[in-house]
Simulated scan of single mutants.
Amino acid sequence: MTAAGDDTRRAWAYLSSVAESPCAPIELLAAELGPVEATAAIKARSVPPQHVAVLDATQARYAVDSSTRDLEIADRIGARLVTRDDPEWPGWSLMALSHADTAARGGEPIALWARGPGRLDEMAASGIGLIGSRAASSYGEHVTSMLASGLAIDGHAVISGGAYGIDGVAHRAALASGGPTMAVMACGIDRDYPAGHARLLAEIAETGLVVSEYPPGTTAAKHRFLTRNRLVAAMSTAIIVVEAGRRSGAANTAAWARKLGRPLGAVPGPVTSATSVGCHRLIADDLAELVTDVPSVLALANPDPTADAGRGATRPTDRLSDDEKRVHDAIPGRGTVTIEEIAFSAGLDVGVVRSALARMDVAGLITTADGGWRLA
């Protein structure tokens, strides 16, 4: 890597640690100035007037630059820093986070630390999240193992949070089936949390990925688990809740799946089981689709019957949110239409349509022509 490349890498590492992630002000500053100049501006406490929020966000940590140490630790354990400058950055998967409610900790990560040979973008493009209670029942473990094994054999990455219970069973079943799996962590990439899963996380890193937005040395904390959940949802083509109690962390991930437009499924359980109450509530409230086996999970993740249901999302439009799909469907196969015509046809507010068009334009699905919009 060139000296300039080293400087850029260190700058991204600094930005990923100088404030609690996600941090929208840092993201905006880096987008405008670039990572090296953004780092210099934060250290000098001199930023453009429109970015003064960065100063408050970084006040506690700006004077400490651990970027060189963090990169050395990552290199020592076989990990790497993945940034939006890198080919494997899962930009399409994370795009929805840039439009989520950042006040509810919904922004994109500044960068991601990854340990393992898997490609982050490819695993996110084919990944299906399996989540659930830490206090899993034997029924929940059986169903999770069945689903994870089937999905792994079918070529899908199994994504979860590396925790005890459903998460651990999902990872182990995927590994046993020879398939890829990704554990998204709420601590630094060099920390094994929970400690009882140290061996499991090492096995995941041998063939798949262990991922975190937190720099090496960061300890697990309650708020980081809630923040981590949005990444599990964003980097999955669908989220399946296998078991969830009345008050479960899985419910938070499920809420993120709905907010980000990811298909959400839930597995029914015994009516007497406290660990299935959350699943039953999601199904009864029409917040999640009832799923019982691998085919129903694949149908949820990839509902188009003309697509190859065995390999995840195969078309760019498979990853659109519900509003974006309505906007896309409102654009005719030939000719152009105005924003107002699209809004009328889709039955959506003009502001919603304008935002959806901007995102699809970036994705290369549509283009402007003759003062209107048409399919690319």
Rank of each mutant, 00 (worst) to 15 (best):
T2S: 14
A4P: 08
S16F: 04
S17M: 10
V18P: 01
E20F: 09
P25T: 07
L28M: 14
L28R: 15
L29I: 04
L33V: 04
V36N: 06
A38K: 00
T39H: 02
A40N: 09
A40I: 07
A44E: 11
V47K: 03
Q50S: 13
H51N: 06
V52F: 12
A53N: 06
L55F: 05
L55C: 05
A57Y: 07
Y62E: 04
D65R: 03
S66K: 01
R69S: 14
R69N: 08
L71T: 00
I73C: 06
R76S: 15
R76I: 03
I77F: 04
L81V: 02
P90W: 06
P90S: 12
G91L: 10
S93M: 13
S93P: 12
L97H: 04
A111I: 09
L112G: 05
W113L: 02
A114C: 15
R115S: 01
G127C: 02
R134C: 08
R134E: 03
A136Q: 07
S137G: 11
Y139P: 02
H142V: 12
A148E: 09
G150Q: 08
L151S: 02
L151W: 05
I153D: 11
D154S: 15
D154F: 03
H156V: 05
H156Q: 10
A157C: 06
V158H: 07
S160C: 05
G161S: 02
A163I: 07
G165A: 04
H171V: 09
R172D: 10
A173D: 06
L175T: 09
M182N: 01
M185W: 03
C187R: 02
I189S: 06
D192R: 08
Y193S: 02
L201A: 06
A205R: 00
L209A: 02
V211C: 01
T218L: 09
A221T: 13
L226Q: 03
N229Y: 05
I239V: 15
V242Q: 01
A244Q: 10
R247C: 12
A250K: 00
A251H: 10
T253Q: 08
R258Q: 15
R258S: 14
P268N: 03
P268A: 06
G269S: 11
S273V: 01
G278I: 02
H280V: 10
I283A: 02
A284G: 11
T292G: 05
V294H: 04
S296I: 02
L298I: 14
L300C: 09
A301D: 01
T306D: 15
A309S: 14
R315Y: 11
P316C: 08
T317R: 12
L320Q: 04
E324T: 01
R326E: 13
H328N: 13
P332R: 11
R334T: 14
T336I: 11
V337C: 09
V337W: 06
T338Q: 11
I339V: 14
V353R: 04
R354N: 13
L357W: 00
M360G: 03
A363I: 00
G364E: 11
L365P: 13
I366P: 00
T368A: 15
A369R: 15
D370Q: 15
